[in-house]
Amino acid sequence: MIVVEGLQKRFKAVKAVDGVSFRAEDGCVTGLLGPNGAGKTTTLRMLYGLIAPDGGRVEVDGIDVGRRPLEAQARLGVLPDAQGLYPRLSAVEHVRYFGELHGLRGAELERRVDELITALGMQNIAKRKSAGFSQGERMKVALARAMVHRPQNILLDEPTNGLDVMSTRAMREQIRGLKAEGRCVLFSSHIMQEVSALCDVIVIIARGRVEISGSPDEIRAQAGTEDLEEAFVRLTGVEGAAEADASQEGKG
């Protein structure tokens, strides 16, 4: 479970995140929805402890990320915006490396690596160097290494960005599977359909603030429209685009 309270982050003159609060429950898929530059990536980075917030706090399974970052990170599996691989290492070696960094070793580690290779259908690329991997293959490796330690909480930053239809489907199945296992899944997206297809709770962010949050039905009701996409546009506001560009600088 992830609890976010009043997160704030400023990059020079730009308020990238301005008082974001929400909860992501176990056994639940929570979607962080917002236009480009709304502050989603910055919020997630504060959640996994690579950016220190100017204000507010984050708790992962009751552990304060600011005070005990390593313990919190041990309970998080993160697919960040940056999904770079090492071109001279194979898929298995990537997963094994991250597994070892999470303290796994020996037979337990090998079992877990095999499990992920099978679950994500990576048998054909398991022993290949990652240099020539397709976007979809790279995503699978990045996902596998993020989940090698069976984290209770999974953070995915725009996980379907740049993926083709088949890979997007595979990713959705993974997310549903994690939810079924009772894990807490939080993912960000700027695509309405994706969020509405998967999420139990939607948190709509724009201009660094939470505009509205709740189940898809609640959001439809509050926006006064049956169409979720219409609701999204109304709530985030088209005029937000200019400000969104400004805060994009802070995203890097």
Binding site: Y48, P80, A82, G84, R145
Partner: peptide, 8 residues
Amino acid sequence: LEPLLINP
């Protein structure tokens, strides 16, 4: 680098 540094 970012994925690496997220490790605990």
